[in-house]
Design a binder for these strands. Structure first.
Lengths: 128, 128
DNA sequence: CCTCTGCATCGACGATTATCAATACCGTGC
DNA sequence: GCACGGTATTGATAATCGTCGATGCAGAGG
């Protein structure tokens, strides 16, 4: 992928994908530009399928918040290519990350991405 | 003191749609059933389009968190039927509500729905 | 080397969706 | 009543998406 060399936050070093910090400006923080809306919609699109929402919940409920593909295919009554496709969509959206261990592939939750998304849905200044 | 105090009050009486309280069980609160995932995905699907995300932000940025359709059609370079369609999708998802005033239609934000959705993306019990 | 197993990619097909033009609907004002 | 302006609905079309079977690829173990 392209290198985002200008970032200086050390936190972002291990964040390979683009979803975590750039994905979702606050929806309620002013009129979004076309690009901002596009980026936000891309992440929401990853959650716009029941199978993917379920996969996400299954990964999140697994030990270590990670699951092997073999477990997921066994639970979901869908073909293995379909499961693999959905996992890729979730990964590309930044909601999951993938790691190979031996000959198995493990998908781990990225709670930061969900947290960023969660905050994007709230008013900018939560007046209370 | 009116809306935020408690969630289990007659507040819910005027909530006609199903989206506000029943829509989104916590994604990270255990494996979701097929129906739960279906309901969550339905709301996310409403946000899975850049135009709708933008519309939502425009309504949210308007005075009183409501906007007339005529304003929105003027800003978005899409045909009026298309705008009307997207607003209906957002309304059916429970994110907006519609009110007729004179011959104009106003769409108002439903921040509770967004708040519920926001919370669904966070870990269930932060247990601190 | 070869085979087996777990996972990803490809190609295709049906279903859903975003969009528009045309039209219908509903208040307002004459 | 009639005409007009704002909004919703309909019907059609092109694009996107979810799903599958077939195939490819990489790592493990003979």
């Amino acid at each position: 992928m392209d290198a985002r060399t200008t970032h200086t936050l050390p936190l972002l070093d291990h964040i390979d994908d683009a979803a975590a910090e750039a994905c979702c400006p606050p929806i309620l923080g002013g009129v979004l530009s076309e690009d901002e809306a596009e980026q936000a919609a891309r992440v929401f699109k990853a959650l716009a399928d029941p199978t993917r929402v379920r996969l996400l919940s299954m990964v999140a409920a697994s030990a270590g918040r990670e699951a092997c593909v073999c477990d997921l295919t066994g639970s979901l009554d869908l073909s293995q290519p379909t499961i693999s496709h959905h996992l890729k969509v979730l990964k590309d959206a930044g909601l999951l990350e993938r790691e190979r261990r031996g000959s198995w592939a493990y998908y781990r939750l990225r709670p930061e991405a969900l947290a960023v998304l969660s905050r994007a849905l709230l008013p900018v200044a939560p007046r209370r």
